[in-house]
Simulated scan of single mutants.
Amino acid sequence: MKTIQIGHLNQPSSRLIYGCMRINGDNSADAIEQGKNAIRAAVDAGYNHFDHADIYGNGECERIFGEVIKESPELRDQLIITSKAGIRFAGTPTADDVGRYDFSKEYITAQVEASLQRLNIDALDLFLLHRPDYLFDPQVVAETFEQLKRQGKVKQFGVSNFSPSQVSMLQSFSTEKLAVNQVEINIHNISAFENGTLDQCLEKHMVPMAWCPIATVVYEAWGNTFDQDTVNRIHQELDRQAQFYNEEKWIVILAWLMIHPANICPIVGSTNPERIKAATRALDIKYRREDWYRLLQARNGQPVP
C-alpha cells in the first residue's frame, strides 16, 4: 500500500482510505459481523486509515469499530482514525427540531466525546467538520479546536465539503493547521478540479479525500445530472481503458483520480473483502495523462477548449 503524510500525524496514511459508513448494514448480527470482517480485511490489505462520522448508522458504525478495537487492542497504534461531526438530523434533540448544521462549541465538544467513547479510543487522529454550518463563528470553532487539542482528544483537524474560501476563512482564525478537505470527487462531480479546491490543497499542503469516488461507474452519482448518452460515452471509454490497462473499470477510475498531483485519497466503502483488496490494484496502474483527458472528453461530450 502506498502512503501519504497527513499534517503532522505520527505515521503516514494509506493512500486508499477505508470508509466505515456502511459497516452496520441493516444492524442485524450477520451484517455487523460482515462489517467487522470488512474492517479486518482492510487492515490485511494495507489500509491503515479509517473514516467515520458521528451520524453513520446513528453512531452504530463507530460502536462496531470500537468493538473491533476492543477485540484487537494492538490495532489502535497501527491505525489513523478519523471522524466527523456537525450535521444534526431533524427531530434531535426534540421532535420538532429541523435538520441543520451545528458548529457550536458545546455540540462539537459533546460529539467528539461521544465518538471517542463509541470508538473505544482516547483520541481521534483527525477530526473533520462534516458540512459547513452557514452560521458558524470561526473564532468559536478555532477555540473549540484548541481546547480539544489541549485536552488530548484530537491530534489534527480538517474539514469536509468546504469551499476554498471557507477553508481560508477558518484557517485565518485557527492556530491549528487544517490538514484535510474531504469532498466529493468522481467522474460526475469534477467541481474540485475547477473551483480551486485541489489548487488550494496543493498550495496549503492539505490532503484531499474523495468520497463516492466510483459514482457513475458502479452506482449512480449523488444528485445525478447525466443523461444516458453521457453515461454511455463514459462507459465506452472506460471499456477501452479497462482493456488497455487489463483492469476493471472501477479500478481504472480510482487511478484516474489518483494521478492528480494533489494526491487525492479515495475513500473505499465496500464491505466485500475481495473488493476492498482489489481496490489496491489501482495503486499499481501507470495511468497516462492522455487517458485522463480522453475520459474527461467522454464525460463532457466535447474536446477541451
Rank of each mutant, 00 (worst) to 15 (best):
A41S: 15
L116F: 12
A38C: 08
A29H: 10
A90G: 12
R76E: 11
I87Q: 14
Y101G: 04
T94M: 08
G59Y: 00
A90E: 13
E74K: 11
E67V: 09
P73S: 07
R40A: 10
P73H: 06
H52T: 08
E60T: 06
D96V: 13
R88S: 00
G35M: 05
T109E: 12
F89K: 13
E60R: 04
A38D: 11
Y101R: 15
Q78E: 14
D44R: 05
G35I: 02
R100F: 06
E33G: 05
I81V: 14
F65K: 00
N58I: 00
T82G: 12
E113F: 02
S115E: 08
A53T: 03
Q111G: 06
G25V: 03
V68L: 07
F50L: 04
G59M: 01
K70E: 15
S104G: 09
L75C: 07
S72R: 10
A31D: 15
G46S: 05
I80H: 03
D44E: 14
K105F: 14
F89P: 03
E106A: 15
K70T: 15
I55F: 07
L79I: 07
G57V: 04
A45G: 07
G99S: 09
E74S: 15
D97T: 13
A114W: 02
T109F: 09
E74Q: 15
V112N: 12
S83A: 13
C61E: 02
V68S: 05
R76H: 06
F103V: 15
E74T: 15
E67C: 05
F103I: 15
D44G: 00
A38H: 08
H49K: 01
R88Q: 07
I108W: 11
Q78F: 06
L75V: 10
A114V: 01
Q111N: 09
N48G: 09
G57T: 02
E71S: 13
S104A: 09
R76F: 02
G59L: 00
N120M: 06
G91M: 07
N48Y: 06
Q34G: 11
E33W: 02
Y101H: 14
S115K: 04
T94S: 08
G59R: 01
S72Q: 13
A42H: 10
F65C: 00
K70C: 09
E113K: 10
S115T: 05
L116W: 10
A41K: 10
Y47I: 03
